[in-house]
């Protein structure tokens, strides 16, 4: 019973965050939902083994990041052309919707590891924790975040957003 209660609390507080991380990685809503689900299945099955060596957030984001990185294994199985065309384009979008769309698109154009780092940064996770999640030094993470943000700004400027 305890496990279920714990898990459901975690699920409620982290689902959106994990979804956004997957969305930043893939920029595809359905695929991101699948990855988020895969992440939480792992969280659910491994929860009894979780021993507080790291904070629960670090642990969940580690699982989420690793699930994203392992994603290539599946990409080999599904051909990309099978993905549905985006019909949303025809609908009038507000400015903020456009911004969201562009931000996620630009992030998904970055290198894989960069996508994860910037997604975690935008999720307001401190750099020390990001370093623990991806396994880089804090200094390295700081430099990377700075570089990625510059890239994103350039992309926004180039497209006149």
């Amino acid at each position: 019973m305890d496990r279920i209660m714990n898990f459901e609390t975690i699920y409620k507080s982290y689902w959106q965050k994990v979804f956004r991380l997957c969305m930043g990685y893939l920029n595809d809503t359905d695929a991101a939902k699948d990855l988020a689900q895969e992440t939480f299945i792992k969280v659910w099955t491994q929860l009894p083994n979780f021993r507080n060596e790291a904070s629960i957030g670090t642990w969940i984001f580690r699982i989420a990041s690793n699930t994203c990185l392992r994603q290539i294994q599946k990409e080999n199985k599904i051909s990309k052309s099978e993905l549905p065309l985006d019909i949303k384009d025809e609908i009038q979008e507000t400015d903020i919707e456009k911004d969201i769309k562009f931000l996620y698109q630009y992030i998904s154009e970055l290198q894989e590891v960069e996508r994860i780092i910037i997604s975690l940064e935008l999720e307001d996770i401190n750099q020390k924790e990001i370093a623990e999640i991806v396994g880089l030094s804090e200094g390295n993470v700081r430099v990377k975040i700075h570089r990625i943000k510059e890239k994103l700004i350039q992309k926004f400027k180039k497209n006149g957003n």
């Binding site: 959106q16 903020i96 935008l122 700004i153």
Partner: peptide, 21 residues
Amino acid sequence: IDFKKIWNQQNIETPKVNNLY
């Protein structure tokens, strides 16, 4: 450009936990 603000606006409905079980 406030990336964090834009980032957090991406919200979709949380799927039911039972599907996951």
